[in-house]
């Protein structure tokens, strides 16, 4: 396959940035999208040019590092996948592919396609944990009976890999799906109930401080989420928050 790539290039946080067009030849349809970018970068390095910076780590869809807004969609076309799980067979020979970084005030561009997603870390630090003694006296989690339905819902919420596709795809750059997943995974379990009220208030407060937008319930996040995190989590967080604010 031969492809035309239009890629956002930005030398650093203060650079204005621009779209640059590249030609990439002899792409194998079985390559992942990131491998295709590796091919481009090898070519750029051989020519003495600056390779395109992009985030990646596990390349098997579980770490949440890869991002990329491809042809107007977070993680590109296809549902329930990250960019590393997107294969070049999803495109046709001769296609033009537009590649941009996540766009949000809270996710500033560091270089090219790499954004700073530490806003998510600060939201977790604000309350996305349970305070337990881990000094050797940890209680066996299985000692506490938990309804199967709650365990399943908590696990579904916990599959969020924090990639930021929800923020990237939301017209308001809202982080509600991410935050609600992190609130839900703990709020649904007895271990998490102890600090539930404080947690939801602190995490939402931090979310607002980071400059994410508000939720319009367009549902775009749920569609583009590689892990299929449900809007049900946002509703649950809204309930948790209401209960915490008025009690």
């Amino acid at each position: 396959m031969n492809l035309t790539l239009k890629i956002w290039r930005q030398a650093g946080p203060d650079d204005k940035g621009r779209m640059v067009t590249y030609q990439v030849k002899n792409v194998n349809p079985d390559m992942s999208f990131l491998e295709m970018l590796d091919v481009l970068n090898e070519d750029l390095i051989a020519k003495g040019e600056d390779p395109v910076a992009f985030d990646h780590d596990c390349r098997e869809g579980i770490c949440g590092m890869c991002s990329l807004y491809i042809n107007g969609e977070a993680h590109g076309p296809g549902r329930g996948i990250t960019t590393c799980q997107l294969h070049m067979r999803s495109f046709k020979d001769g296609d033009t592919i537009i590649i941009e970084p996540w766009r949000a005030k809270a996710f500033p561009v560091i270089k090219d396609l790499v954004t700073d997603r530490s806003a998510f870390d600060r939201i977790i630090q604000a309350g996305g944990y349970i305070s337990v003694n881990t000094s050797g006296n940890t209680i066996d989690a299985n000692a506490i009976p938990i309804p199967k339905e709650n365990a399943d819902k908590a696990f579904d919420a916990a599959t969020c890999i924090g990639c930021g596709a929800c923020v990237a795809t939301c017209k308001n750059s809202s982080a509600m799906l991410f935050v609600s997943a992190k609130v839900s995974q703990l709020a649904l379990l007895p271990q998490g109930r102890v600090e539930a009220k404080e947690r939801v208030l602190k995490m939402v407060h931090q979310m607002d401080l980071e400059g994410f937008g508000n939720c319009t319930n367009t549902g775009a996040c749920e569609v583009e989420c590689p892990k299929g995190i449900s809007l049900e989590n946002i509703a649950r967080m809204n309930r948790e928050y209401l209960a915490a604010v008025i009690s």
């Binding site: 308001n172 750059s173 937008g213």
Partner: peptide, 22 residues
């Protein structure tokens, strides 16, 4: 909400995941 995205996408396909009204 507008302030939350100071730099817009060069190419965006919002109709792929949400309704026009929303």
């Amino acid at each position: 909400n507008r302030a939350a995205r100071p730099v817009k996408y060069y190419f965006n396909k919002p109709e792929a995941n949400s309704t026009w009204a929303s």
